[in-house]
Every structure is written in C-alpha cells, then in structure tokens.
Design a protein around this nucleic acid. Sequence first.
DNA 1: TTTTTATTGAGATTCATTCGCTATAGTACT
DNA 2: AGTACTATAGCGAATGAATCTCAATAAAAA
Lengths: 150, 150
Amino acid sequence: MKSELQVFQDYIRLRELRRTPERERILREIFEIHGHFDVDGLYLQLKQKGVKVSKASIYRALPLFIDCGLVREVEFSQGHWHYEHIYGHSHHNHLRCLSCGEIQEFENLFLHCLEEQLAKEYGYRIKSHHLQVEGLCPACRQREDEAGRS
Amino acid sequence: MKSELQVFQDYIRLRELRRTPERERILREIFEIHGHFDVDGLYLQLKQKGVKVSKASIYRALPLFIDCGLVREVEFSQGHWHYEHIYGHSHHNHLRCLSCGEIQEFENLFLHCLEEQLAKEYGYRIKSHHLQVEGLCPACRQREDEAGRS
DNA sequence: TTTTTATTGAGATTCATTCGCTATAGTACT
DNA sequence: AGTACTATAGCGAATGAATCTCAATAAAAA
C-alpha cells in the first residue's frame, strides 16, 4: 500500500501542482494526529514544534488532501470544520453523544447493500456516505435518568 | 397530531420562554417552505411579504425550533447552514449529487435495526441519525462519462 | 542558469453569526 | 386595568473562520 505521502505526490503530479515542504509537513502532522482535528489546533500544534507554516497555507492545503482522499470533513461544530485523516482507515461511521460529545466509531456492514439498492433505484453512481447516529452515551444516559428522578 | 405551532407553544411554556409574534411568524414561514432553506433566503422571503423581522431574531429562533424537534440542520455548505422543517415528515435521508447538488430523499427501512444493534453494543440511547449518501445523479453521471470518452 | 509561474506569508477583506444595548412588550401578580 | 419584572426585538457593532490580495520566493522545465 502506498504511503499517504506517496498518494499525495501522485496527486500533485497528476494535477500538475508543485511539491512544497509546507504541504508535506502539514500532511505529516495530520497523520500524526489520532482522531479529529481543526485548523486552529493543527496550526498551534505546528507552531509549538517550531514549524513555521501560515494558516492560509493550511486552509489552502486541506482541499487538496480532501480531493485526493487522504482527509475528510467530519463535522461542522463550534463554528468551524473538524477533519480527520482517512487513508488506511476503513471507512467508519460515528456514534456521537449529544451531551458530552464523545464519539464512538463503528463499522457498518450493510450500508453497502443500501448503496447498491440506491444505485439501482435512482440511477445514481454512489461515491460515499456519511452516517452519524446521535444519542446518549452510557454515562450521560445514567446522569439524565438520575436527574429525571429527582 | 399537534400542529407545529402547538408543539412550539408547548415547548415555550415548558422552557418558560415567551410567545412572540415574530417567532410564530418565522415558524409559519418555515413550514410554508417546501424543501431546504437558509437564513438569508428565509429573511428575504419574509421581507418580500412585508413582514418585518430582523435576521437576529431568525438566528435566535432557529435553535429553539431545533430544540423542540421542528427543524433540523441539514448541511453546512457554501459557508452557511441549510435547514429543513421536519415535523410531520417521516425521517428521511439524503442522496446528494456531488456535481449538480440535486437532493433525492429516500426512506430507509433497516437503520432502525442498526440503531437497536448500536444501543445494545455500546449502551447508547439513540436519539436520531443522519445518513447522507453522495454520488452522481443519472444526468451528471452521463455527462461525466461523455467527458471521459472525449 | 534562466524562465515561468505556482505557492507562500502577512495582512486586509469578506461575510455568516453573535453580541451589546436600549426600547418594547409578554407574563404574572396585584 | 395597572404595575413590576424581565425576556425579547431590533439595530448596529463586534467576532472570527475562511478567503483574497499582492509582493516575494522557490518549484519545475528548458
């Protein structure tokens, strides 16, 4: 399997863009993050390490990473986008707690069947899906129950 | 079944807020819109009808409508949120064309099974789910194929 | 090297959303 | 009805994420 850097370089060549140390440094940093991130967090993390990259460059690099399938937008909350790297990950869906915001990832097995069904029924060529399920995690659920009783 | 206005008034009472003509007018307008809307469109639509409501009031009313289950955020795109009213609708999911943006709504049958399974597996109390499937609609698919051949 | 031009960084700009403030008007209680 | 209390409306200012401008730089190709 190609490394994410390799994937990006291939993409750069294909699109006739330019390899720059900034873009590759940003990409490396993203793949060191376990879980979700946002632009500001990524920027600060680079800054702390003494890496000089402007926010503008991050904003300009992200659409490229997304376009070549290395990163995806997870959700828009708190007024800005949250992202995650996805290369090498099996596609997963999110189970999010409405109270504490905890996110569980889960695999799904039968959405592929659904995709096929949709393709047939509506004539679509399916590219991707996002499934987000919301509810209360065990802890918050218990807390809510106790509050309800009092 | 309660009217959406009734639902909202019950909510207002429960939360000890105040009934105001602005909020109820905004809500009525929302339920006259078939399909998705955004704040700006809603504001202009009211303005055209000669209804004087400020954008700030719309921004302040929407979270209430969402909280009482009358409206939901559909997606964040073009730099702002898009909403839809959901009361009285069966929950539907979206099949969106990545090229032209057309949105097909579809029912799903077995996500309820998935919800039950998740509830059992992770101990969550499921409240809702959003499933968005993306791809190319028949027309755009054909256009893409033709472009690819040339 | 030289040329070409994509990319960078910094700051300015845009624009959706929120905030601060004052006047108004629901609501509850005489 | 009248009064007190305070949530809400409207307006304009403020905020802040994202984008744009532009001069300087540095990839890539010749």
